[in-house]
């Protein structure tokens, strides 16, 4: 699944510019402990987190997640979006909860890891 397909699926807004939408999504990972994410998230995951500060961009790039998804309509800082654009990683915003998002994604990406 591509990032714009995901955005359509869960009615998410893509906050970053459209240069970073090429990544293929192969799974999802939900966690707000950054070191835990760096230990357990997989390349290609959609990373769902409530954090919105600059460091999420660094973590996302290190783990090579497909994109960052901020749930529940939480406002993302302008500086974070700017950094994400510079580094070429997409940030999406959705009004749904992490659980609702995961349920939607699971209809398209089977849980086979």
């Amino acid at each position: 699944m591509k990032i714009d397909q995901l955005a359509d699926l869960i009615q998410a807004k893509i906050l970053t510019d459209n240069k970073s939408l090429d990544n293929e999504i192969s799974g999802a990972y939900i966690c707000d402990l950054l070191s835990w994410v760096m230990s357990h998230a997989n390349k290609g995951d959609v990373w769902i987190t409530v954090h919105t500060h600059l460091n999420i961009v660094a973590v996302a790039l290190l783990v090579e997640v497909a994109c960052i998804l901020v749930p529940e309509g939480i406002q993302v800082e302008e500086a974070t979006i700017k950094k994400a654009n510079e580094e070429g990683i997409a940030i999406l915003s959705s009004n749904k909860t992490a659980y609702q998002i995961a349920v939607e994604i699971s209809k398209f990406i089977p849980l086979v890891k």
Partner: peptide, 15 residues
């Protein structure tokens, strides 16, 4: 509050 402090940093480095 920023998501640091899981106590996983040093174990990650080791890994």
């Amino acid at each position: 509050e920023m998501g640091f402090g899981a106590g996983m940093g040093l174990p990650n480095i080791k890994r």
